[in-house]
Design a protein around this nucleic acid. Sequence first.
DNA 1: TTGAAAGCGCTACCAG
DNA 2: CTGGTAGCGCTTTCAA
Lengths: 342, 342
Amino acid sequence: MPTIKEIALLAGVSRGTVDRVLNNRGSVDPKKAKKVLEIARALEYTPNIAGKTLAAKKKQLKFGYILFGSTSSNPFFEDVVRAIKNRADELAEVGVTVDVRFTTIDKPEAQAACIDELVAGGVDGLVITPINHPLVADKLRELSGSGFPVVTANTDVPGCGRIAYVGSDYYKSGETAAGMMNLITGGSANIGVVIGSPLVLCHSERLSGFTNYIEKVFTGLKILAKAVNNDDDIDSFRVTRDMLIRFPEIDSLLLAAAGVLGACRAVKDLGLDGKLAIVCYDVVPTTCDLIREGVISAALGQQPALQGAKPLDLLFDYLGMGVTPEKEFYYTETEIKIRENL
Amino acid sequence: MPTIKEIALLAGVSRGTVDRVLNNRGSVDPKKAKKVLEIARALEYTPNIAGKTLAAKKKQLKFGYILFGSTSSNPFFEDVVRAIKNRADELAEVGVTVDVRFTTIDKPEAQAACIDELVAGGVDGLVITPINHPLVADKLRELSGSGFPVVTANTDVPGCGRIAYVGSDYYKSGETAAGMMNLITGGSANIGVVIGSPLVLCHSERLSGFTNYIEKVFTGLKILAKAVNNDDDIDSFRVTRDMLIRFPEIDSLLLAAAGVLGACRAVKDLGLDGKLAIVCYDVVPTTCDLIREGVISAALGQQPALQGAKPLDLLFDYLGMGVTPEKEFYYTETEIKIRENL
DNA sequence: TTGAAAGCGCTACCAG
DNA sequence: CTGGTAGCGCTTTCAA
């Protein structure tokens, strides 16, 4: 493993010059630059991460992380927040501080203001679960345009200039739900679907993936009815109950939003627990209980811990180590969880 | 984030002394030691990983990694080897070299000799997929007893003194297969089982998990017949074919060993593809193809990449950073893969 | 038993 | 445009 020092020695220049060449900082005599590059290539130089990390400490980087919910509201985000805190503790060691803020999903002005605050507060990079609204999108575009790195997490605003997105491929996760539903029901089912809101892109993407796929591949699966629960357990109970009463032929449920507990209460309330094939999203504690009870057949996870930590890593690599993300989309796996592998 | 330097300053001692206290090396005046510890505790000192890593480079550690198969034989281990190589490249940066050796699963003497060679060659730690045989077990016990760190991977020899095991919880993965089989078949099935060899602990553990679980929980699932394929595709074809002919009532297969391709060839040969519920282990390329074709319903993965990399990390943490593994068993997840989430 | 100093690889700064 | 130097946190060695 060659080092900058060795390259400097071989090239007959100083370490500073090698550093300038390899990291495109400052300007260097083209001849020397060429020589350095040749040697680096010949020796297959790769920078030492520990060295870079240690040196990066002096930068005292500050990151902002804006995400939905005030922790208590949506248990899925609790896992994300836990992962953020853990990673933030680790990053503290290398001089990074992380400022975590919460905004609600329905207030673009508030989220835009939150971005402004963080930037004014001097953060060097931002992770955000963005609301897909011009007020936010434009601000992100503007920031990115000025060289400020933004990573979107959990949900994306394509084309806003962010350096990467970390989160689920919702469309594909909809297909996975279809595949699972097909296996569980033997290929023939009358499905009731519960979604959060047609306006939340994630949920509608999931539903598109599911719908298109069953129409194309699993023609024995039919969607009989759809209900909207606003990601709320109380609403969820009511609309699910109504749907099940109105469509007694329903023999399976796809719960494509939060509010899984409410929906399952409705199922139990009608004495249908264990009689319906139920597939839902997000592996949260209440869902695990329902799986153990035999109410839910399978839950589809989306690696919340990765969604929390990875964006911070990308930001640190970018700002601390000078490494640009190697891809634009860091899709999380759609994990299938049943009672036995919870 | 406090540093050793700060603690030294506050305690009125040198960095060397602080180091000695915090890492129990050399002896220190009890009074000073106490003071240092108090300050470290008060400041919630945690060592800086980058600093430690950098300093560890001077140790020039050497690890050995003994595993089954010569890569080509079992595609599962190809993923493991790939992960080992990747992690080894990363560790090279911090002065670690990894010597990877292959042994066959049926030659304990050869594996024991291989261990001896590596140790004689001066490795500081060893990762091994051990053959569960006294010849190997005793050697591992002896090594461990003398303070030499061993990590078992993929398969374990309990009580051999190794500092940790990284791999599947086979019994539990058998239960997961049962759960999946139950979902796919609607709770009623006549199952044919293919195992590698009753002598390979992993496979028999899987089968125990599966068997005990269905007897207890899924009483509609019956095992009609078992076949042994010696992890070989040719044998697998033959024994599976024979079994399916002899037991035409079989409507589902559990493939608990390698040789998945051979077994599926038999299924196709008899025109049964798409008509049987098939659950198998290990997400390898040929298996993925069979899932896409609709021959296999689900495959259960065991995180080969983690099995390759994690043991090396544990060894480096132990020898390079002075950190003992925080648990004895690092179980991999049993990942459920179907056509849509491959 | 202890302190001082060098060095792991990299970056930043200053002087020229 | 360039070289030298200091320093990030930790370990190790040498001298006292």
